[in-house]
Write a protein that binds this DNA or RNA. Sequence first.
DNA 1: TGGAAATAATAGTAATACTACCATATTTTT
DNA 2: AAAAATATGGTAGTATTACTATTATTTCCA
Lengths: 226, 226
Amino acid sequence: MNLQISIQPNLKLALRDPEASALGRKIIREGIVLMCQLGYEQFTFKKLAEAIDSTEASIYRYFENKHRLLLYFLTWYWNYVEYQCTVSMHNLNDPAVKIKKIIEILTGGLPSWADTSDIDKSALQDIVIAESSKAYLTKEVDDINSKQLFKPYKDLCHHIAIVFSEYNPKYAYPHSLASTVVETAQFQPFFMAHLPSLTDFGGEKGNTRKVSEYLESLVFAALSAR
Amino acid sequence: MNLQISIQPNLKLALRDPEASALGRKIIREGIVLMCQLGYEQFTFKKLAEAIDSTEASIYRYFENKHRLLLYFLTWYWNYVEYQCTVSMHNLNDPAVKIKKIIEILTGGLPSWADTSDIDKSALQDIVIAESSKAYLTKEVDDINSKQLFKPYKDLCHHIAIVFSEYNPKYAYPHSLASTVVETAQFQPFFMAHLPSLTDFGGEKGNTRKVSEYLESLVFAALSAR
DNA sequence: TGGAAATAATAGTAATACTACCATATTTTT
DNA sequence: AAAAATATGGTAGTATTACTATTATTTCCA
């Protein structure tokens, strides 16, 4: 089973396929680590070029700008989550069990099994938590959306919404609940680490189990109401 | 009753009180309109200076940088929401009614009654929706938090959490639910406008009633479960 | 009316976000 | 194996951003 196929990001994101060359792969591998360290705002192509012993101009031949590189990272991540969900639910029938599995995956609680890529998934997840909103909270959002670049994220939410509807076909807000859950799965760990008074979870780093429990109780309550 | 008193932002946010001078007031009034138009990334002090017929250097005497100006706007907004909540709930006893009122205010569905300020609240609300996450999704978050600059936001969430606990003292996640609701009240309208497939609400602009209904059902389900 | 403070006007710096150009290395095609 | 195409490196350069500094002028207010 080749994992690469299913997590291949949209090629429109990049000017040329970064997985097809040594330099491209270095841009992705090291880019993830560096953006995680510096944060999106402080991250620059110049710094990345220094880190991988290349030049700014060479990186620009792969990605128009750092926002596209961020989108590439996020696309990789959402495709990976989607893939994990698909595989995990392959032989599950009970929607309740499926929902629990989805939440476990979303909060990163599922140990990522070995795959062929050497992406630093922990760094990638930190990027998703801290930067993913910046993918769409921009004036370019409609333009980017019209190029289908949010498709993996929207598809994931849609598939989650379908499982919610399976559990309770009468529920009126499956898509809103799906996007709320996906967003909350990023925000609550961030709050836990930096603004703990916005949560009810102890400061123990990586207390993702608590976040899962909260989300489970929220989802099942919403889907079971009245 | 003087509204100004209760929505005075933390003075540590600004180098000098912008409400105390004509230039300062222009920075705030026009700054809100311009940041709403351009978005946080494209907004610059230089552009604002041109718009108010002043200079970059003069604006820097009021705010260290544009991130602090954004924080000032958000602080104003959260103080305003907190004030609206306080006044609205003054003679309410039923926690269920209080919760409905809070959600109505959060989604901006409550017509803002006349107050003495001439702030463009519609533009301010657009800024909150599109930019508020950028206040804390930065590597400076711990530094800013240690200066208490998120206090109004955290206080608001805390007060909402208290009302949730009033409704159901046994509920285990009042703070997480409060921050989830406040965040979702911003994200769902954004999705509605730009990524409608992430919601279950028709594209009719300003369909805040639907967002309120979704949030009400979510909150009451969560607080009433089992 | 004199002094302090605020603002304007101008200049300047380092960094960012690119674009352009050319030489060289590598890969692909024939 | 030679020729052609493509990828990369190296260097430069531009416009904009995010500031800081200096001095002159205006406004405030005691």
